[in-house]
């Protein structure tokens, strides 16, 4: 059976070959409910999203700012589990076999389902992004033994160059460059540092580099896409989803994503 690690690589390589930047979009599974998440995922793709990061809720998400924390809490109140999220991905795959899917979350929830994770590459998941494991660690070192999924690591403005090498060696898919010192959705986007730091990472790896944390406007997205291979939009989407959760009319979100997709590919 072909390794599904290929889906993420193929997507990113194709974008590169066409001189296009990737738009990665994040949402928290089950906020406001799983049906909406499924609808939003398909809607994201139609609006120009290339890769989807599905947030797995955790009671103690220490890297998240208030917006994503609240979304985790709302999702947990709906009793969303990793098991249900994998089923959601399978459902998504019925209509979309091209868009790579990354599960993003915290180690403890993944460890609770360590066995179930062994075959998630056959169920449509392409990568894991575990926020609280040291970047140098391989997934199997922390107790997740699936070798057919990509492991995406974070590099931050405070990561020393000596560690970047080790982090890149144990990563696959892409490198996620954190564009600020802080939690998700903060205001102090560190645009100046980003260029230099991303250039430094490039000396250590051939993997694509995505920039994320705190990118809200198409202007910021456009600037960061010039120095990276794509951008990740998270908190602002989560906030917009929450604001629209009453009427479940998500059109303005798709317009917003469309605008960003165009801005990064001018």
């Amino acid at each position: 059976m072909e390794s599904l690690l290929i889906r993420l690589e193929l997507k990113l390589n194709t974008l590169k070959a066409n001189a296009r930047k990737a738009l990665v979009a994040y949402l928290v599974a089950g906020d406001p409910d799983l049906e909406s998440t499924l609808e939003l995922m398909h809607g994201f793709v139609s609006a120009g999203v290339d890769v989807i990061e599905v947030g797995v809720p955790f009671t103690d998400p220490i890297a998240e700012g208030p917006i994503i924390q609240s979304a985790h809490d709302r999702s947990l109140k709906k009793k969303i589990t990793l098991k249900k999220i994998i089923l959601l991905v399978e459902e998504f795959r019925k209509k979309d076999s091209n868009t790579p899917i990354i599960l993003m979350g915290y180690l403890n929830t993944f460890l609770a389902y360590a066995e179930e994770l062994n075959n998630i590459h056959n169920r449509g998941v392409d990568a894991l992004l575990i926020v609280d494991i040291p970047g140098e660690s391989n997934l199997n070192e922390v107790g997740i033994y699936n070798k057919s999924i990509a492991s995406i690591s974070l590099v931050s403005p405070t990561t020393s160059l000596s560690r970047v090498d080790g982090i890149c060696k144990s990563s696959s898919g892409f490198i996620y460059y954190v564009t600020l010192r802080g939690v998700t959705g903060s205001e102090d986007l560190d645009i100046k540092d980003a260029k230099q730091n991303i250039e430094n990472i490039r000396t250590k790896t051939i993997l694509p580099i995505m920039a994320g944390f705190g990118i809200k406007t198409s202007k910021d997205a456009a600037y960061l896409s010039e120095v990276s291979d794509g951008v990740v939009i998270g908190s602002s989407l989560v906030e917009m989803i929450h604001r629209a959760s009453d009427k479940k009319d998500y059109k303005y979100i798709y317009n917003y994503l469309n605008e960003i997709s165009e801005a990064i590919n001018k």
């Binding site: 220490i62 890297a63 180690l107 926020v131 609280d132 494991i133 040291p134 970047g135 690591s153 974070l154 590099v155 931050s156 403005p157 405070t158 990561t159 020393s160 560690r163 954190v178 010192r181 802080g182």
Partner: peptide, 14 residues
């Protein structure tokens, strides 16, 4: 034990 933290903190721990 170990160091299971977001990447930004790794530098401060070191």
């Amino acid at each position: 034990g170990g160091k299971f933290v977001p990447e930004t903190l790794m530098y401060a721990l070191q």
